[in-house]
Structure formats: structure tokens, C-alpha cells
């Protein structure tokens, strides 16, 4: 389940960043992957659609969001939490 979520997110981000999913490591930041603010908003939308969840994210104050976008690992963890809450 956890690995499945990780793979699906990596695919979404890889498509957005025009990279191979293997290049989307947990340590990589959106900036390092070449994802700008609009690309991030688009990625979050794709994640919401993929998992049928609502991601709390305001582009004006990303640091204040419950959804930590520091790197791929934090994004994956946040999505896992939201999916668990939905299924919970």
C-alpha cells in the first residue's frame, strides 16, 4: 500500500518534471526536479485526482500548509496520511 502510493506519486511527479520515475528520489525537492510554482499546483491537482483526496495547499504560504512540500519524501508521507484519513 505504502509502496504503491510512493510509486504512483513518483509517476505523477516524473510526468510533470519530464523525468524518469527512477530519478524522482525521496530526497529531491520540487525545485531540484525543475518544478516551478505552477507545476507544483498542477502536480497537487494530479495527486488529488489520483487518490480522490483534498490537499490543503495555498501557493501564497506553502510553508504554513499542513501539506509539507519540502521534498518528495515529505510529499509522499503527507499523501499517505491523507489517504489513511480518507479510508479511516
Amino acid at each position: 500500500m505504502t509502496d504503491d502510493i510512493r510509486q504512483r506519486i513518483r509517476s505523477i511527479i516524473a510526468e510533470q518534471a519530464m523525468l524518469d520515475p527512477d530519478q524522482v528520489t525521496d530526497e529531491a525537492t520540487p525545485q531540484q526536479l525543475g518544478i516551478d510554482s505552477l507545476g507544483l499546483v498542477e502536480s497537487i491537482f494530479a495527486i488529488e485526482e489520483e487518490f480522490d483526496i483534498t490537499v490543503p495547499f495555498n501557493a501564497n504560504e506553502p510553508e504554513k500548509s499542513d501539506f509539507d512540500i519540502s521534498n518528495m519524501g515529505t510529499i509522499i508521507a503527507a499523501v499517505q496520511r491523507l489517504v489513511a484519513e480518507k479510508d479511516g
Binding site: 497537487i44 491537482f45 501557493a59
Partner: peptide, 8 residues
Amino acid sequence: EGLRVMSK
């Protein structure tokens, strides 16, 4: 809403 630039 989609752009995520609106204040709540």
C-alpha cells in the same frame, strides 16, 4: 480555487 492563490 484551482490556482490556489485565493485567501480563505
